[in-house]
Design a protein around this nucleic acid. Structure first.
Lengths: 245, 245
DNA sequence: CGGCGATTTGATAATGGTCAAGTGCCGTGG
DNA sequence: CCACGGCACTTGACCATTATCAAATCGCCG
């Protein structure tokens, strides 16, 4: 089962989302959540479209994504997920999954039964509100991605996704000196932006040439953060990171 | 203020979303919700990006949309809304609006204070669950639209949006004999699909030529539902209309 | 009847896709 | 230790879908 270090990413996530200070009772309820922890390799599905899961998964370590496919096999990644996220929290209230969730890198994932979460929500209504809020922020990111994919050019689109990832990673302490781990392949970046890998490559080259970023070996460094944000029209309001850093 | 006929669309919506039968108490709590009703003309904003609203709006009559804009003024519609919908329910848990909501046609809208909804959620937790579910279905539709915009060709994309609208309108009883009101302009359909109005027009012509639809004077008739669904790769699973019709 | 917005159509342009070939990197196995 | 294989990345040439520009036409409302 889970040790208290396993539930820590979840606890931190809830804390950062809550617009109030957690009570001792809430805190210990979260720390004691029964969680089945599992290690997964890269490129594995955690849950699949059509599943009717009886549990949610908390991403403890690694990168994952939510995706859907067209009839002819083209993939759209609808979200990237980083440690602390709950990629399928929706399944708590929607019986049938309408998307798949897969790992991008090796991951550690904690599974929590819906029943446990239902009880948690019932006995700690404020936590229910926070979880609801989490799903609303995901939805807000979806809307921004729609704008990104539907109405921005390829260069701007990629810049926006990079800005978002850096900002979100920074919020969980995974950015150090403008540098962070960014292990997704150009194919995956293409699937997230609605571009082909070839064109992603060209846009990245252009960003490198412009001195905006370095992206090599799964590591991203942003040299000109203001420039990148301007190109990506990035305004973090939609991430709803309302707490002062 | 609101008469009981005003709260009826909301009540019906909650009923159709709930996976249980509403109790008398729940039913009357919903019917008695204090609601400030307002009539709006077409193409007016109901709320705007950056607002910090203290209430939500229930669409009672008419069509509305959620949208965002790029820096250079291109618009992406992220959702269409039909009577019964609550386009800005997210604002209940997210302080600052990250999108705008505008009318597409003349509308009647009911405003409900956040405080009223908070109390409702607290005293009737099952209704809270239903409202949460509503926001999750919206998010599910966003994901499908991302796939649509990012990975489907223009023809397929438009067909998908039409299928979705007909299906949702049917679910609230607004389709009669394969025909429904569909008042959005080709510009608006373009803003929803990430296409230009010119190209929307061409695709519609092609659909007409193929004998799939008639779309004239804001009225849509689907002549070949199976064909349209196939072209749009439409599988309604993501709408989570789990009740038997 | 006049005017304006929505729709329609045609011609041309451009963004991004497809195809193809080659490079570099890393892990595995001889 | 080195050769091999595979995958991600890179680059170039060419192509196609969709955008842009422009000009009618239609239909409704005043």
């Amino acid at each position: 089962m889970a040790s208290s270090t396993d539930t820590e990413p979840l606890l931190r996530k809830i804390e950062s989302l809550a617009r109030f200070t957690l009570s001792t009772a809430e805190r210990s309820a979260l720390a004691d959540i029964p969680m089945r922890v599992q290690a997964l390799r890269a490129d594995q599905d955690i849950v699949r479209l059509g599943d009717r899961p009886s549990r949610c998964c908390v991403l403890l370590e690694g990168f994952a994504c939510v995706y859907k496919m067209t009839a002819d096999g083209k993939r759209q990644i609808t979200a990237f997920h980083i440690p602390g996220d709950i990629p399928d929290l929706q399944s708590l209230h929607l019986r049938t999954l309408d998307n798949s969730v897969g790992t991008l890198t090796a991951c550690r994932v904690g599974f929590v039964d819906h029943e446990v979460l239902q009880v948690l929500c019932h006995t700690h209504p404020r936590i229910a509100g926070v979880l609801w809020r989490e799903t609303l922020i995901d939805a807000s990111i979806f809307r921004e991605w729609m704008l990104n994919i539907g109405r921005r050019g390829a260069y701007s689109r990629l810049a926006h996704v990079l800005c978002e990832l850096v900002t979100r990673l920074d919020a969980v302490g995974l950015v150090d000196d403008q540098t962070c781990e960014l292990p997704m392949t150009q194919i995956e970046l293409g699937d997230a932006t609605g571009l082909t890998p070839v064109h992603v490559n060209r846009m990245l080259q252009e960003m490198r040439g412009a001195g905006l970023i370095t992206l090599k070996n799964g590591s991203l460094t942003v040299h000109d953060s203001a420039g990148l944000k301007q190109i990506g029209e990035f305004d973090p309001i939609y991430l709803h990171l309302e707490r002062p850093a």
